[in-house]
Amino acid sequence: MYKVLVSEQLVPNIHLLNIEAAEIAKKALIGQFVVVMVDEVGERIPLSLADWDVEEGTVTLVVMQVGTSTRKLAALKSGDYILSIAGPSGLPSHLEKFGTVACIGGCYGIGAIIPIARSLKSLGNEVISIIEARSKNLLYWQDKLQQVSDELILATGDGSSGYKGWAYDPLKEMLERGKKIDIVFAHGCTFMMRLISEATRSFGVKTLVVLNPIMVDGTGMCGVCRVSVGGETKFACVDGPEFDGHKVDWDLLMARRTIYLEEEIRSLQRYECQQWYFETAKAMKAKV
């Protein structure tokens, strides 16, 4: 059992969990993830390590609520327990002095891009960070990211802050302007990572993305996380999750991520119904 020390909503739909997991914190490397199972009936889901603290013995996850498992995680309160956390899994990012780097984050990836930006900065790179969200109130941790970036660019779908558009737009503009970028790191939803890879392809700028296929064991045993990179089948949990975005078969990844769409909707409806029932029962009890 792993104790949740802090649980808070960062912005609507995105949640921070700070969890006691001393051994994982000690071993965590940038770019790795953990496999979390919230309770006895839960799924095993992969989540990137957004941060960790060796001294405190904690790890930080940033969770975006999309289905039952992430909803359950977000519903945890400080002091609650998570059944199991395994990791750190996956290969760490290979970071060095590249020159000028762009770190791009969207949705949960805004959290997970920070350790990458921080390390790149301390290695002497010029770090340009770009984060995106639908609207201003969905952006978080700008200050944290600012501290580890030479430049921070915001992009919002509705133009309420920074660029009107997605991270793709300022990046593309920069490249078109002739700004020399040596490498791009992108972390977040599949669609964003794909767009970013498209943007950099014609400029020949190496782009590393953190792929997010469905996983189960996270040890290379089941093969559900297989992705096609450069025409080769790879298991993202052990061969990745970071890959060259220009070589990824995005159509395949996107198709494979939708396999359980129907089931997930059913599961979520059931969960929501139960929650409603519990809440109502609690409220009635309180009244009596």
Binding site: V216, D217, M221, C222, G223, V224, R226, S228, T233, L252, A255, R256, T258, I259
Partner: peptide
Amino acid sequence: GENLNGIYSANEFLTR
């Protein structure tokens, strides 16, 4: 066609 949806390794199918 081995990566199409609906194709499970036995390990995945049985583990699930």
